[in-house]
Design a protein around this nucleic acid. Structure first.
Length: 499
RNA sequence: GGCGCUGUGGCCGAGUGGCUAGGCAGAGGUCUGCAAAACCUUGUACAGCGGUUCGAAUCCGCUCAGCGCCUCCA
C-alpha cells in the first residue's frame, strides 16, 4: 500500500468553504497551478510565504507518491497601475523609471525571484510560463469568448460581460459575493467608461500611442488583460480541468473569480477541483505589502538591515518560522518571533544530526515504546495530510527529536523498538524534515582546515582537563565560543557546532 | 456601506465538543571540575457577556478590539 493510499489528504477548498478529501482527476498524478509574481520589482517576504506554502504542497504530494505537474506563471505584462483597466502597465512604468527595456526589467526581476526562491530552498516548478510568451493563445481565447457571446469589443478593447455571465452562471461563487453588491459598491470610475457595466473586466486592451508593450490582434494593437493569462496558461499546460489552483488570499477577488468566468466562458467547464489560498504575512497586525511600505526584502532580512530587526536571520530560520503556523492563518512577523524560531530550528537540526549517527542494535522490544513510535510516524502523515498542517507536523518532529536524544543519551536503546520500526522512524523523520518541509542544514563550514583546527583545540582542551588545568580548558572553550564555535561535552567525547 | 476573517498561558503559535499541541522564555532536578548541550519534572490559557449541552477554547447570539477583500497586490 503506497503512502498516498494509506494517508488520504483533506484540504480546505475555498470554493466549498469546507475541508474535502482530496481526489485527483487522475489517480497517480496531480495538476497544480499557482499564480506567480508580477515581475516589476523585488519580491518581498509576504510573496515568499505564498510560494513556500505551495512548495510544501508540491513536496508533500511527491513524497507520498504522486507525480505532480506544477505550473506557476510569470506575469510580465497586463497589470495596470490603477483601477482595473485604467492607468499604465506596471511593467512599462517601472521600465521607464529604471530606464530599461521592458523585457530587460522582466529579466532582471525574474532572475531575482529565482535567486530568492533558491535561497529559501523553494523547489523550481515543472513549467514556468510567461504571459508575453502566450499572446497568441490569449488572443485565441478572447476570440472564443467573443464567439461564445461572453465578451464584447469597444474601440479596440475587449471586455468580459459579467452581468450576462451571471445570469446563467454564478459570478462570485468563489469569493462569496453577490453581483448586486458589487454593482453598487466600490469606487465609481471617474473617466469615461467603455464598459457596459462597471464590474466587467478587460480581457484585451487597446494600446495607447505611448504604450510600448503592444501586439497585433484582430482588434488592433493592444495587450492582454491581467486575468486572462492564468486561464490560458493553466488550460494549455494542465488541461481544461485540473486539480489544484493556488495563490495568495488577496487574489480570490477579483483575479480567481475572473479566471473561473473565463474558463467557463471559453470551455464550458469549471476549471478547478480545489482552490487553495495562502493567508497574508503581517507586520504589527497589518498586511505586508509594497504599497503600505511595510514590506521586508529577503536581502534586508538576511543582513538584518531593517529598522524592525535587531540582526539578520538566515533563510532556513525564516522558512522554519513560517512553517510553525498554518498557511491559512495570518502570521505576524517580528524580531522576537524570529529569535525563538531560530533556537527551535537549531534544536531540530541537532536532532537531525543525532539521527544520522544512530545505529540499530537488537534488544528486548518495549511494546509501549514500539506503539508510541508507530503513532509518531503516523502522526507525521496524518498531520501533513490534514490540510498540510506543518505546525502540527513540526510538533511531532520535536517529539521525535526528544526521542532521538534519548537514544543518544541512553535513556532508550534503539533495540527497544523493532528494527523495521526504527528504520521507518529514521527514514521519515529525516524525510519529512528534509524533503517535505525542505529544512536543510545550513551550510556549515566545509572547510577542512577550520574543522581540523577545532578538533585539534578540542584535543588540547581534553588534555588540559585531564591535567585539571581548568583555566586553560575554559579559555579554549570560551574563546571558541566568542568565535561562534560551541563545544558540547558528551559521554562519547566533545562535539562542536558552528553558529 | 457590502462580504469575510481573527482574538489562546510571559512571547510565537496549533487545536478534534470530554483525553499533553509544539517552539521560545521561566522554575526545580540529573549529568558536568564549572558551564553549555541533552534528559526528567513543572506553573499561569482560551477577549467579555449570555445561551445550547451531562460537558465548550471548540457550537449559537450579542458586545468590544483588530484585520482582510470590495482599487494594483502573494
Amino acid at each position: 500500500m503506497s503512502l498516498k493510499e494509506k494517508y488520504p489528504i483533506a484540504l480546505y477548498n475555498t470554493l466549498s468553504g469546507k475541508k474535502e478529501t482530496f481526489v485527483p482527476l487522475n489517480k497517480e498524478s496531480v495538476g497544480m497551478y499557482v499564480c506567480g509574481p508580477t515581475v516589476y520589482s523585488d519580491v518581498h517576504l509576504g510573496n515568499i510565504r505564498t510560494f513556500l506554502s505551495f512548495d510544501i504542497v508540491y513536496r508533500y504530494l511527491m513524497y507520498i507518491g504522486y507525480k505532480v505537474r506544477y505550473v506557476r506563471n510569470i506575469t510580465d505584462v497586463g497589470h495596470l497601475e490603477n483601477d482595473a483597466d485604467e492607468g499604465e502597465d506596471k511593467i512599462a512604468k517601472k521600465a521607464r523609471i529604471e530606464q530599461l527595456e521592458p523585457m530587460e526589467l522582466v529579466q532582471k526581476y525574474t532572475s531575482g525571484f529565482h535567486q530568492v526562491l533558491d535561497q529559501f530552498n523553494i523547489l523550481p516548478v515543472s513549467i514556468e510560463p510567461s504571459a508575453t510568451g502566450h499572446i497568441v493563445e490569449q488572443i485565441e481565447m478572447v476570440k472564443e469568448l467573443i464567439a461564445n457571446g461572453w465578451a464584447y469589443e469597444v474601440n479596440g478593447s475587449v471586455y468580459f460581460d459579467v452581468s450576462k455571465y451571471d445570469k446563467s452562471h454564478s459570478y462570485g461563487k468563489l469569493s462569496k459575493r453577490k453581483i448586486e453588491d458589487l454593482m453598487d459598491s466600490g469606487r465609481t470610475l471617474d473617466s469615461q467608461d467603455e464598459k457596459r457595466n462597471k464590474i466587467d473586466f478587460a480581457i484585451w486592451k487597446k494600446a495607447s500611442d505611448s504604450h510600448i508593450m503592444r501586439w497585433n490582434s484582430p482588434w488592433g494593437e493592444g495587450f492582454p488583460g491581467w486575468h486572462l493569462e492564468c486561464t490560458v496558461m493553466s488550460t494549455k499546460y494542465l488541461g481544461e480541468q485540473f486539480d489544484i489552483h493556488g495563490g495568495g488570499m488577496d487574489l480570490v477577488f477579483p483575479h480567481h473569480e475572473c479566471e473561473i468566468a473565463q474558463s467557463v466562458g471559453a470551455t464550458g467547464k469549471d476549471p478547478v477541483s480545489y482552490w487553495m489560498h495562502a493567508n497574508m504575512l503581517t507586520v504589527n497586525g497589518q498586511k505586508m505589502s509594497k504599497s503600505l511600505g511595510n514590506s521586508f526584502l529577503p536581502s534586508e532580512l538576511f543582513a538584518g538591515d531593517h529598522k524592525l530587526l535587531d540582526r539578520g536571520f538566515s533563510p532556513m530560520v525564516v522558512r522554519f518560522f513560517m512553517l510553525q503556523s498554518h498557511y491559512s492563518s495570518t502570521l505576524d512577523f517580528s524580531n522576537e518571533a524570529l529569535i525563538a524560531a531560530e533556537k527551535g530550528y537549531k534544536r531540530l537540526m541537532e536532532g537531525l544530526k543525532v539521527s544520522k549517527n544512530l545505529t540499530y542494535s537488537k534488544g528486548q522490544i518495549n511494546q509501549e515504546l514500539e506503539d508510541s513510535v508507530n503513532s509518531l510516524i503516523d502522526g507525521l502523515f496524518q498531520n501533513m495530510g490534514d490540510d498540510f498542517n506543518t505546525a502540527k507536523t513540526l510538533a511531532v518532529l520535536f517529539e521525535i527529536t526528544t526521542l532521538m536524544n534519548n537514544f543518544k543519551v541512553g535513556n532508550h536503546n534503539t533495540g527497544d523498538i523493532k528494527e523495521e520500526t526504527f528504520n521507518n522512524l529514521i527514514k521519515h523523520y529525516q524525510g519529512v524534515i528534509l524533503q517535505v518541509l525542505g529544512l536543510n542544514e545550513e551550510v556549515e563550514s566545509n572547510n577542512n582546515l577550520a574543522n581540523g583546527v577545532i578538533e585539534l583545540l578540542i584535543n588540547l582542551r581534553s588534555d588540559a582537563k585531564s591535567a585539571k588545568n581548568y583555566a586553560l580548558s575554559d579559555k579554549i572553550r570560551d574563546d571558541l565560543k566568542a568565535l561562534g564555535v560551541t563545544l558540547k561535552d558528551g559521554k562519547e567525547g566533545t562535539e562542536f557546532s558552528i553558529d
